[in-house]
Amino acid sequence: MDEYVKSVKEGLKESVSFFGNKNKQNREVWVLKEFLKYLPVDVQGTDVKESDAEPNDAFYKDIGFQIKEIQTEGRKRDKEYKDKFKSINEETKPKELLEHYSPSHIPLSDVLHRVRDELERHRNEKYKNNTRNINALVYLNLDDTTYTNTPVDTSLIGSELGNWQSVSLVTNNCAVVLSYNDDSNKLLKPLIGKLYVKN
């Protein structure tokens, strides 16, 4: 097997494992670490850990977060990686694995309606509206999309923000704290509305 093809197959194998059900807690910790990478905070290795009780999925120091991923509608990521992994064999040529990547580059505000709708659904279905003490961290994982360094219009989420203790968001190239409803938090409160974009 060609070395490039072999490395792609190994990467897919790792992805199948990472996105499997058994690895859910590790993914949640990873999302929180990705979010914190954007913020002007000094994070040590032991500062982030998994949670052993709802509603928190992961902690930064003593601050718990409920992690909610939003994917492209209809995407079945685990099946996608498994199918790609199975399709690679000894005869696969490197050029067969090359994929064109031309992402849309849009303002984050353009997709905040998705965040609003998913938070509302999550609140109603999982927590029966009892979310005032939950810090929601949304991982917005939409295919072929990156986000511009444009101010975020939180009014597009509207009153939904008031149903959570805080709402933060991380994507593949930016992070933002959208709201915080308690003045006591020294991490999130000063960061509200500031969009941190990876160049």
Results as ranks from 00 to 15, higher is better:
S159N: 06
L140S: 03
V29C: 06
V8C: 13
A175K: 12
C174Y: 09
G74W: 14
I157Q: 15
K86W: 13
G45N: 12
F35C: 06
N56C: 15
L119M: 07
D153A: 12
E99T: 11
E90S: 09
P151Y: 05
Y180E: 13
F18K: 06
N124V: 15
S179E: 06
I67L: 06
G11T: 10
L137K: 04
Y127F: 15
K84M: 02
K95D: 13
K95G: 01
I157N: 09
Y60K: 10
P190F: 03
G158H: 13
I63T: 15
Y101Q: 04
S155E: 07
S155L: 07
R114D: 12
G162I: 10
V41R: 09
L97W: 03
E34Y: 04
K61P: 14
S15Y: 04
D62V: 14
V111N: 02
S109C: 11
K22G: 03
V177Q: 00
P107K: 03
L140C: 02
S179Q: 15
N130D: 13
H122P: 00
K61Y: 12
D143S: 05
R116D: 02
D57V: 14
L39W: 01
A136M: 09
S166Q: 13
K37S: 11
T131S: 05
E99M: 06
L119P: 00
K68F: 00
D78K: 07
G20A: 07
